[in-house]
Computed example of a mutant assay.
Amino acid sequence: MREHKIVVLGTMGSGKSTLVRAIAEGAVIDTDVPNSDRQGADKASTTVAMDYADIDLPNGDRLRLYGTPGQQRFDFLWPILLQGASGVVLLLDATRHAAVDELQDYLEVLRLHAAQVPAVIGISRLDLAPAFDLESCAAIAGWEDRLLPVLPLDARDREQGLLLMDVLMSEMETRDLVMSDG
């Protein structure tokens, strides 16, 4: 049995907790508290440390999902949670005007703290932002010779969450193959 630590990063409201709950079918440990942020006032609660879930895969492997808090004031937790990560899911909220800039910021976090860790980007809330330009995200989704997969995602939909995990697992397997070949 192999264990895979998967860290879910993204802005507040992008669907990190929702994705973790959907994939784990609700069996999640969370640190949600009433939201006091003015920026996210439309959200009743928010994560202040992390969400956590274990998922047993059909092949006997186990996913350990860690959802990070999205507020900048908790960004000191991101490098801690990224330590030892097998993979990263970066979620962006398509309804946020600054989503592309936020992608750049999160890519910098990955470059600094998880440069070799396989990652995928999920774009949530596209149903509320039909004009969102996925192509612009795909064009900047990486650095040097590394491009990250970009997928539309309804974080509430378990099947879409599992598809995102499948893509991430493929990225992880590819990295393992490349590393074993030197």
Rank of each mutant, 00 (worst) to 15 (best):
R111N: 07
M172L: 13
A115Y: 12
Y52Q: 05
L164M: 14
K43C: 13
D54V: 14
S86E: 06
R73P: 06
A41G: 14
A131F: 01
D37G: 02
D105C: 00
R146D: 10
A129Y: 00
A98T: 08
R96Y: 03
S170N: 14
D166K: 15
I23T: 07
S170I: 10
D157P: 12
I23S: 04
A24L: 08
I29V: 13
I55N: 03
D93F: 00
S45K: 08
T95C: 07
R175Q: 15
E3Y: 04
L82W: 06
L63M: 11
M50N: 05
A22Q: 12
E135K: 07
P58N: 04
I55D: 00
S86A: 12
V117I: 12
G26I: 06
Q83S: 15
M169K: 11
A138N: 03
M179H: 13
K43N: 13
E144T: 13
S124Q: 08
R158S: 13
L128I: 11
G40D: 07
Y52V: 03
V167Y: 11
E159L: 14
Q72P: 01
L9Q: 00
V167M: 08
L107H: 10
D145N: 14
S180E: 14
A98W: 03
D54S: 14
V178C: 09
I140V: 15
G60R: 06
V120M: 02
Q72L: 09
G122S: 03
Q160F: 12
L163C: 11
E135S: 02
R175N: 12
D93N: 13
P130V: 14
V89Y: 04
M169E: 10
G26P: 12
D56A: 15
T31N: 13
L164I: 12
A115F: 11
S124C: 12
C137W: 08
E3L: 09
S170G: 11
G67S: 07
G70C: 08
Y66G: 10
R96S: 09
D127S: 14
D157G: 05
M50H: 10
V88A: 00
D56M: 12
T95Q: 08
I140S: 01
A41Q: 13
T46M: 11
V150C: 04
A119S: 09
R158V: 10
L128S: 14
S180Y: 06
E159I: 11
V100L: 05
A98C: 02
V100Y: 01
R175C: 10
A27V: 11
A85R: 02
P34G: 13
S45H: 08
Q83C: 15
L90R: 02
L151H: 08
V7R: 02
D51N: 15
L134K: 01
F74V: 01
Q83V: 15
F74R: 03
S180W: 07
L77E: 01
T11D: 09
L151M: 15
R158F: 05
A155R: 10
G26E: 03
G84A: 08
